[in-house]
């Protein structure tokens, strides 16, 4: 059986800048997250998979075809880039009808698909507005709808919820999970750990143009918690002799004890020690590490 999305040692240069450096991945189905800091190569990777960029070396295949040369292969992929790419002077409907035609839809089909998805995303009321008059969040919803017009088998999303409020972002997340559960491939690029943690997905960690790690969702917090700083807020400060002996202690600031942990167990050890010493715990927060630090 042909792999859905296959990239083999893909290198992409922009003049002398190496955007992708012999990056490989293979995806057959489901929800997949590409996570990495700014400039790591996430967008370039999606554009190579989507057939917008021709790799300088290596190969990309979508269901066995090269999406850069094979227009039909590109018809099975949909790329939602980090800009909305809408024609501002045209209405939402005209935008969608135009893209629908390029995907080979009849106008009636496009209207029907648009109605379904825009209603799901609570944006149907803007159908006759000019795209240029809409907020960034609404434009992003319209762009998501446009990307779905071709009923893609592979859905590539580059920071798709960057401008959405929490409720709208969750609607998008649910929609994507539904796609993934229907056997489609979703590849979602983000630099936000909490967003990556939201999905039960395969994680591809990308750094300096290379996929440095591939994780399962269940491994994410194990990986995140390595060297993570946890803040334990106590009802009252404890004296220095107790604080200094808290397992994995890093520093004490008033009624806050900061510990540096390597895994889930370390948190339990510290908390158990403080409880044993008679401290009352109000909250346990961890400062999410910078994505750059966890790679």
């Amino acid at each position: 059986m042909t792999t859905g999305v296959y990239a083999d040692r893909v290198t992409k240069l922009f003049r002398k800048t190496v955007a992708l450096d012999k990056t490989s991945l293979s995806i057959d189905k489901g929800m997949n997250i590409v996570i990495g800091p700014n400039g790591a190569g996430k967008s370039t990777l999606l554009r190579c998979i989507g057939g917008l960029y021709k790799p300088d070396s290596g190969k990309v295949r979508i269901f066995g075809s090269d999406p850069y040369y094979d227009d039909d292969a590109r018809g099975r992929v949909s790329l939602l880039s980090d800009n909305y790419a809408l024609y501002d002077k045209l209405s939402v409907m005209k935008n969608l009808l135009f893209f629908g035609k390029l995907y080979g839809n009849s106008n009636a089909e496009t209207v029907e698909i648009s109605r379904t998805f825009l209603k799901k995303l609570d944006a149907y009321q803007y159908i006759d507005k000019k795209a240029g008059e809409l907020s960034r969040g609404t434009k992003q919803k319209i762009a998501i709808c446009r990307a779905l017009l071709g009923d893609p088998g592979v859905f590539l999303l580059d920071e798709p919820t960057a401008f959405l409020d929490a409720a709208s972002a969750e609607k998008v997340h649910l929609m994507l999970e539904e796609f993934a559960s229907n056997g489609k491939i979703v590849i979602y690029a983000t630099q936000r750990l909490n967003e990556a943690a939201r999905f039960n997905a395969n994680l591809f960690i990308i750094k300096r143009g290379r996929i440095s790690k591939t994780l399962k969702h269940s491994d994410l917090y194990g990986s995140i918690l390595r060297d993570a700083k946890i803040n334990i807020k106590l009802a009252d400060p404890v004296n220095a002799s107790i604080a200094n002996k808290v397992p994995h202690f890093e520093e004490a600031l008033g009624s806050n004890i900061r510990i540096k942990v390597r895994n889930y167990k370390d948190i339990n050890d510290s908390v158990r020690y403080l409880i044993d010493k008679g401290a009352y715990i109000i909250s346990i927060d961890y400062t999410e590490p910078l994505i750059e630090d966890m790679l």
Binding site: G50, D71, G75, A85, Y87, L102, A147, G150
Partner: peptide, 14 residues
């Protein structure tokens, strides 16, 4: 200039 080409070129247009 308007950055609309990404969406246009990611469709199956020749």
């Amino acid at each position: 200039e308007r950055r609309t080409s990404e969406a246009l070129l990611s469709t199956p247009i020749k």
